[in-house]
Amino acid sequence: MTLLYILAFVLLCIALNQLFKVFELSRDLRGEKLYKTTDSDNKFNGRAMFLFMLLFFGFFLWQIDAYWYRILPKSASEHGNKIDALMMANYWLVILVFFVVNGFLFFFAYKYHGKKDRKAEYILHNNKLEMLWTVVPAIALAFIIIFGLKYWNEIMKRDNDPNPIKIELYAKQFDWTARYPGKDNEFGIDDYMQIDGSNPVGLDTNDARCHDDILVKNEFHLPVGREVIFTFRSRDIIHSAFMPHFRAQMNCVPGQITTFRFKPIVTTAEMRKEKHVQRNLDEVNAIRIKRGDDPVEFDYLLLCNKICGASHYNMQMKIVVESEADYNKWLANQKPIKSAAKTTAQK
């Protein structure tokens, strides 16, 4: 059977070779310059350019229609609303430029397709035009820069709230640990040399401030309406704490402490009721049921967003935003490190 395939392949090659030979012979005999573009080539490709433009713009609009509801739902954090507003303004501008410039390009490509009897115009330059398309983008960019930096400074400011909730997110291959400062509201200092099974995030056990710290895995909670200041550490390599629903992201760099702060304003329960969220969740659940999995509910997630190894794609943690009362109740149920260590020892 294999032999037959090989034979068929060889015969096909010979046949193709003969075909090419005939083609080459007739080409050389006629002495035509096949590479020269003819009027019909120019007309065809000119029209194709125009058609492509329609298709391209249509494709864009179709994607807006088909995919727009799938983009991140409304921001769950206060500063995120500003980012979203600025993002929308930028989208409008960018989409306008996309349509206008591509439109001109493809329209000219169609309109000025070559004809035998046409001669191009000898136009060298035009200072007014050059000025126009230098100054107009410059003005538009000035606005983008001014608003961008205004928000950037607001978001990165460190002293919005005198009494923020403090949470440390600790990254390692391939999971997250959240640390709360406990009763004293102070994190102790860390020491990576002391990392071991009972001290997974490398705290300095001699620092008494660490003893009431609380470590949680799999999910962590945030109170709605309270400013949260996150600090980030990493045990091994660079990870990135990405909380897309809160429009928050910061790298976790070994040997450094990085920070980001935001105020969650939408609880998990409220977000689950969002139309946009529900529609996506229905789709997800339809897929899951078809696959034989159980349906799920929407949850905020903390994702790793810096390549960190084989299980990078699965390094995530659930975030629950709830009322401050519920949050306090949840926190009270978590064991501080010292007593957690004791219970382990007693076992």
Partner: peptide
């Protein structure tokens, strides 16, 4: 784009 404008485009 302006180079294309009023040209005689050979495709």
């Amino acid at each position: 784009i302006t180079t294309l404008w009023k040209g005689n485009i050979q495709y």
